[in-house]
Each structure stands twice: as C-alpha cells, then as structure tokens.
C-alpha cells in the first residue's frame, strides 16, 4: 500500500515537472530570478499578426511562469500594414492575451510603421504622449522616445527628463538604433549626433532599439550598452554584417529578451522562438558623475523623508 502511494506521488511529481517543462517551452532560464529584483521583457518590431509573432508571445508567456516579469517594453513597429480595430486585436491583443491576463503591462514606443495616434491606445500605456517616462521601481527609470520625429520639443524634454532623474538605472528605448551592424539600415547617425551627447553625461546605462529585424548586442559605446531587438515579429535572415561593434548577434530566427535588474547589475537573456538561449550577459550599471550626484540626491531625499517621518 505504501509503495503504491509512493508510486502515485512520483507519478504526480513527474507529471508536474513535465507540464512545467512543456509550459516553459524547454527554455532554460539562466537569469538569477531573485526575489525582489526587477524583471521585464523586451519585444521589437512585433506587429505582423503572423504565426511567428504568436509563437514568440507564447514562448514569453511560458517563461513568465518561471520568470515573473511585470512589464514589457515594445520598441516600435507595433502594427504593420493597417491600424483598424481588428489590427489591434490580431497584432497585439490576441498574441499577448495570456501575458496581459497575468497582469503584465506593455509600454510602447512608436516605430516608422506606427500611426502617432497609437499614443492614445490604452493598452500601450503611453498616456497620450509620443514620448514619456515612467519609474516602475525606485532607482529604475525608463524613457520611451519617438525616434521618427526628434524635434526640438522632444529633444528639450529628453534633456530635462534625464537631468532631473535621480534614478540609478536609466534605460532608454525607441525604434531607430544609434548603433547597428545591419546590412539593410545600419545606424541612424543623425539621431546619434543629437542623443549621444545627452545619454553619455546624464548616466544612461542601456539603450534598446528595434527597426533592424534581428537581435544584436553591441560592445559598450561610450560606456552605454546598446541592444537591438527587432525580430519579435519580423525577421531579416542574415541581416547582420558582423562588425567590431557586435558582442553577440542572432539573425536566424525570431527572438525576445528577458532582463533582470538586481543591485548594480542588469542580467539579460535573449531567447529564440524555439526556446534557445541566444545570448546571456551580466552587465553593470554605468557610474557617471551625474549618476553619482543623482544617487546622492536620492539618498538625501530618503534621509529627509525618514527625518520628517520620525519628527512627526
């Protein structure tokens, strides 16, 4: 009787393990997955409504069970070829339904295939703005930019927002990459000319971009990590002309990225449609005089708040 009971238990555990492996799409999550760390996902150039976009979304949903990311950033080209209500359904709401049901919030940037009015769409969380910022956790701030149209107003806004931010982690995302080894597009030099002089002194650590339909992580440029994630829907097979810039590139299948911030380190794992890990890295936060000053100011705020609290 006892033996039978043990056999049933083993059977149950085996079934659970198999189910977990199936749901995880056999993805081996290499990220530390620490309690209390900040976890997010990155998708770019998604909006095809095609089978591969759905498969990527499914893979991400499987990973989310093990690696419970709270938000996802979208790097533009959220809708290809039409923006009728049915397109929003087919190219966004249906593929990411499972993730959204689990409470994952999506934050979108605009690509060159996106109508600016997407900023009003509630599930993109842009609050009616082409460019915006949000702080999901103390010390971590995201900046979503509209790289299609970097006019004077936006430029001034970026400068002000970066200057005023006291967050240790400043992560910027937009559509057109400042650095790229792409055969088709390559880097957007005009954008780099105006944005890099802001990103470097004001302590930006990470820049995520899409546009190129592949995955590429650059070696740090002026201390900043640039990652292209533009193949979560579209793919340009063989699109990378590997150069001295490339730390890791993948242009053979669709992909997405998972990130985890724990203390001074951002852990990144890029995963293909078939669940293969195509990149894994542990990357440090940038230390700039501005970042140090910002951190000191933030600490001062905390101290003041505590003092105010104790004096009450």
């Amino acid at each position: 009787m006892k033996l039978r009971h043990v056999t049933v238990m083993i059977h149950r555990v085996a079934v659970m393990l198999l189910a977990t492996a199936f749901l995880a799409g056999a993805v081996e999550i290499r990220l530390p997955c620490k309690p209390g760390s900040f976890k997010f996902a990155v998708f770019g150039d998604t909006g095809t409504g095609g089978r591969e976009q759905y498969e990527i979304a499914q893979q991400a949903a499987s990973c989310q069970r093990i690696f419970p990311f709270e938000l996802a950033i979208m790097l533009g080209d959220n809708m290809y070829g039409g923006e009728a209500p049915r397109d929003f359904q087919k190219k966004f709401e249906a593929p990411y339904k499972t993730l959204m049901e689990r409470g994952v919030k999506f934050y979108a940037a605009l690509g060159n295939h996106d109508d600016a009015e997407q900023r009003m769409y509630k599930l993109f969380n842009m609050n009616g703005e082409r460019y915006y910022t949000f702080r999901p956790k103390a010390d971590i701030r995201f900046f979503a930019l509209d790289s299609n149209y970097m006019d004077q107003d936006q430029f001034k806004w970026v400068e002000k927002a970066l200057t005023e931010s006291h967050s240790k982690w400043k992560i910027v995302f937009f559509h057109h990459p400042l650095y790229s080894s792409g055969r088709r597009h390559g880097p957007n030099l005009e954008l780099r000319k105006v944005l890099e002089p802001l990103f470097v002194p004001y302590g930006v650590s990470f820049v995520f971009a899409g546009h190129e339909h592949f995955y590429e992580r650059m070696k740090p440029q002026s201390g900043i990590y640039h990652v292209i994630m533009g193949s979560s829907g579209k793919l340009r097979r063989g699109g990378i002309n590997k150069s001295n810039l490339t730390a890791r590139g993948f242009d053979e299948d669709r992909a997405f990225v998972l990130c985890e911030i724990d203390g001074d380190t951002l852990y990144l794992q890029a995963i293909s449609r078939t669940g293969e890990t195509i990149d894994y890295a542990a990357l440090p936060c940038r230390k700039t005089p501005h970042a140090a000053a910002a951190a000191a100011a933030a600490q001062l705020d905390v101290t003041r708040a505590r003092a105010a609290g104790s004096s009450r």
């Binding site: 070829g81 039409g82 923006e83 009728a84 060159n112 295939h113 996106d114 109508d115 600016a116 790289s147 299609n148 149209y149 970097m150 006019d151 004077q152 107003d153 430029f155 057109h176 957007n188 005009e190 954008l191 000319k193 105006v194």
Partner: peptide
C-alpha cells in the same frame, strides 16, 4: 494607414520652422 512614415533627421528638424504638435 498601411503606409510607413519617413524618418525625419533631427538635424533637419532643428533647422526647419517649428510646428505645433498637430503638424509634422
């Protein structure tokens, strides 16, 4: 709606007369 939008270089936008937010 199905047509993409051209990118406008920021270096050019900084030189052209500024437009209100309704226009690009």
């Amino acid at each position: 709606k199905s047509a993409p939008l051209s990118t406008v270089p920021p270096t050019l936008l900084f030189k052209l007369p500024k437009l209100p937010q309704e226009l690009e």
